[in-house]
Amino acid sequence: MRVRTVFLALGAAIGLAASSLPMSVAAVPPPQPGSLTKHEITATYVSGLSSGGFMANQLHVAYSGLFQGAGIFSAGPYDCAQNNLSTALSACMDTVLPRKTPAELEALTRTRASAGTVDPPQNLSGDPVWLFHGTADQTVKTAVNNDLATYYRDFGARVAYDNSSPAGHAWVSPIGPNSCGTSSSPYINKCGTTDPVRDMLTHLFGSVNPAASSLSGKLVQFDQNTYVPGGNAASVSMGREGFAYVPRSCETGPCKLMVTLHGCYQYYGLVGNALMDKAFLNEYADTNNMIVLYPQATTLAGNPRGCWDWWGYQSAQYPLKSGPQMTAVVNMVQALRDGSTPTPVPECVTASNYAHTLAGRAYASFGLTYALGSNQALGLWNTLTSSSLRQTSPGYWVKC
C-alpha cells in the first residue's frame, strides 16, 4: 500500500511542470553532432524540476561561486534525503517520516563549507531564486517545497515563490502538451495564459525580451562521456548524449548560460526531445542571448526511472562538489565558459578489502585495511567488507 504509493510517487517526483499561452512556435531543430566549445559566458544559472530541481539546488549550493541563481519546479532543500532512499520517499516527497529542518540543513551546509566540500553559503546571499509548486502537485508535498524557500531565504537569497498555480507535478510552459492539473508523461503542462518560464527568467535576469516565434539557433548533441569522472557516463547513471541549444547570436557575442535538468521519466532515452522542445526555454534563449545546456541522466540499478542523484543511489558524495554527476555537469559548464576539456579521472574499483590487498591497492595491519599510499582507513580486513578506491598516481590509492 504505502510502499507502492511511495514508489509511484518517486516516478512522478522526478518529472517537471509547465504553463501556457495560445501560440505556435517552431519545433526544436534536429540535433547536430558536435562538442561543447568556448563561448563568452557572462553569467551561469541552473534550473530543473523534481529530481532535476533537487539537483539544481545541489549544484547552486555546492558551486555557489559558479552559479548566480536558480529556478526550481517542485523540490526540497539541500540534502533533505540524507543519503537514504526511505527518507527521500517518505520525508522529502511525502511527509510521513520526519525530515531535517531547514535550520539543520543550513548548519550542515556551513559545516561542509568549512571542510571545503561545498562553496561558502555566503555566496547565496543576494542570488535570485525562483520557486514553483502547483496546488495539484501531490508528488512533492507543499511543506517540503516551503522548506526549500526557507532554506534559501535564511541564506539571504532573493526568493520569488509561485505556489498558487493549479498545476500538477510538471514543468509549466505556454506550449506544454499536458493539461494544467495533470502529473503524467512527459511532465510538461500548460496552465491557461500563464508563462512561468517568463516569470522565472525575469526574476533571474531582471528583465527579458519576448520569446521568439521561431528558432534560429542550433541544437548541439555532444558525448557526455568526455565530462564524467572516469569517462564512463553510464557508470554514474548518465546518458551518452547531452545537448546544448546555442542561439545564432551566441556564436559571436556574449551570452548567459542556463543549465536545465530534466526530471525522472524525462530523460532523452525515454521521451526523446520532449523537454527541449516544449520547455519554452529555447524561444527565450533566441531573444535574450542565452545558451541552454540540457545534460541527461539515464537508468541504472537503483535508479530505474532515470532520475538525477539526490538521495545517494550512485554515490554518497552526491550533494558535494566531488559528486560524480555534479562534477560532470560542472565540467560541461566549464567547457562552455573556457573551452576546457577535463582530465579523465580514473574509475573507482570496488572490491572486498581482502581482494584490494591481494591486488596491491591496500595493505592490512592488525586486522584492519588501509589504502596504499594515502593510508586511508577502509575497515576490517576480510572478504565481507568492501571499499571503493581509485588510483590518483602510481602506488597512491584514495577512497572514492
Rank of each mutant, 00 (worst) to 15 (best):
A43N: 10
L368G: 11
G126H: 01
T252I: 10
K100F: 07
W308T: 01
Y152M: 08
G134Q: 14
V172R: 03
Q68G: 02
P30M: 13
V329D: 08
G239Q: 12
G53D: 07
V345D: 09
L8N: 10
A113W: 08
G65W: 00
N83Y: 07
L389C: 09
K190R: 12
I41N: 01
A103Q: 14
P210Q: 00
G53E: 11
N273S: 10
S387G: 06
V6R: 05
W171F: 11
H133D: 13
A27S: 15
S393N: 02
T341S: 09
G192M: 06
P98M: 03
A62Q: 05
G272M: 10
V118R: 00
L257Q: 11
G11N: 12
I291S: 03
S90P: 01
F67L: 11
V61Q: 07
Y363P: 00
H169R: 04
A9P: 01
Y396F: 12
L320Y: 07
Q122T: 11
I175V: 15
G65V: 07
P247D: 10
L384M: 07
P177E: 03
N178M: 05
P344L: 12
H39T: 08
L219N: 01
V398K: 04
G168M: 07
V6Q: 06
T5D: 13
D79N: 14
C80F: 13
N163S: 12
V6Y: 02
Y370K: 01
G71N: 03
M258Y: 11
T117S: 04
Y151W: 13
E283K: 00
A75G: 14
A27L: 13
R4H: 13
Y245H: 09
V398A: 04
A233C: 10
M276C: 04
Y354P: 05
V159Q: 02
C348M: 14
L384T: 15
Y354V: 15
E40F: 06
A43D: 12
G269C: 06
T343Q: 08
A17T: 09
H39M: 06
Q376R: 09
G395Q: 09
Y370N: 02
L389K: 06
N123L: 07
T182V: 08
A43R: 12
A212L: 06
S179Q: 15
W381S: 07
Y78D: 02
I72S: 03
F155R: 01
L8S: 05
C348Y: 10
S86L: 06
P33R: 07
F243D: 01
S184N: 11
T109N: 07
V345R: 13
Q391A: 06
V246H: 05
F73S: 10
S374D: 02
S393W: 03
K218F: 01
S184C: 04
T341E: 05
C92K: 05
P128Y: 05
G269N: 14
C255A: 15
K141D: 08
S393Y: 07
L300E: 12
R110V: 05
P102V: 04
Q317M: 07
A211G: 09
